[in-house]
Write a protein that binds this DNA or RNA. Structure first.
Length: 274
DNA sequence: AGTACGCCCTGGCCGC
DNA sequence: TGCGGCCAGGGCGTAC
């Protein structure tokens, strides 16, 4: 569910609500969510009575910088949600609420995740680049056509390339399909077959589609909601994702669905060239 | 070392 | 109404 635009939306919401606030205690009800990098007891100990200095995003990870040199990190997997809970915006702690981050005045951040693919862990700031192991942020100034072009040096299908977090951080299955439609590139096209012009089109499409996704506050197809529990609007703007056998908005040809790298892939067989 | 696939889970939807 | 089968936006471990 949550790709860069969704995590960015949640980050902006939580930043407003929790920056400068102290974590009284974290409760972890499902150990498997805390299986990576450190165990659940360590997470509890290293976050207790720590103040949240900053909230940031890196790829699809959400980062809470603490007043120690530690960072509390969440990944939402497929169905994860982070809900800010207060007197004004109460949320029920249900069977899918695996983590409760308790703040003062009965405020809380709830982590819900029906499919349990999410993760939580605490690492030191110095371990960040090592433990997350991500490619560049596609919306940052540091990401350029030249950098993108230099990474397109392998015969991997371009769709798989876009999904590889070590290449570019934050693109998931939905935005990958939308980006390739925007760029007019067939998802099976080998990455190293793109010429400079095609790489430029891909670069522009990555920026445009992700920026529009953030502007629309993300895509809500099933589980995704922001930190207030509200749905995004980007699903209404999709041109290929989830539109198999419906007409292409550009040429009218029926959109096709196939499977690439085990993921459902939607494309216009006429507009998108191999 | 790079790439492809099965698998981790649960819920929703479709067809019988 | 019930149930089996299939689908799902992510990432990892394993096998080449």
């Amino acid at each position: 569910m949550p790709e860069l635009p969704e995590v960015e939306t949640i980050k902006r919401d939580l930043k407003k609500h929790v920056t400068g606030k102290m974590i009284s205690r974290i409760e972890i009800n499902l150990p498997r969510i805390a299986r990576k990098h450190c165990n659940q007891d360590e997470i509890v100990i290293r976050t207790e009575r720590r103040t949240i200095k900053e909230v940031k995003r890196r790829g699809k990870f959400l980062l809470f910088y603490l007043d120690s040199s530690d960072i509390l990190i969440f990944h939402l997997g497929m169905t994860g949600q982070l809900l800010f809970c207060s007197i004004d915006s109460p949320f029920e702690i249900d069977k899918y609420t695996h983590i409760v981050v308790r703040l003062k005045d009965n405020e809380k951040i709830l982590f819900r995740d029906p499919r349990q693919f999410g993760q939580v862990f605490v690492i030191n700031q110095e371990e960040l680049s090592d433990k997350l192991d991500l490619g560049p942020e596609p919306l940052s100034d540091g990401f350029t056509v030249e950098i993108l072009y230099s990474m397109l040096n392998r015969p991997t299908k371009i769709k798989s390339f876009l999904l590889d977090q070590k290449k570019i951080a934050g693109i998931g299955n939905i935005y990958a399909d939308e980006i390739l439609f925007e760029a007019g590139l067939h998802p099976i096209k080998p990455a190293n077959s793109l010429n400079k012009g095609e790489a430029t089109r891909l670069f522009v499409a990555i920026r445009n589609v992700l920026t529009e996704g953030v502007k629309q506050r993300g895509t809500s197809i099933s589980d995704y909601v922001d930190a207030s529990g509200k749905k995004g609007n980007m699903q209404n703007k999709h041109r290929v994702y989830g539109r198999a056998e419906k007409p292409c908005p550009r040429c009218g040809t029926n959109i096709k669905r196939t499977v690439i790298g085990g993921r459902g892939t939607h494309f216009c067989p006429r507009c998108q060239k191999t």
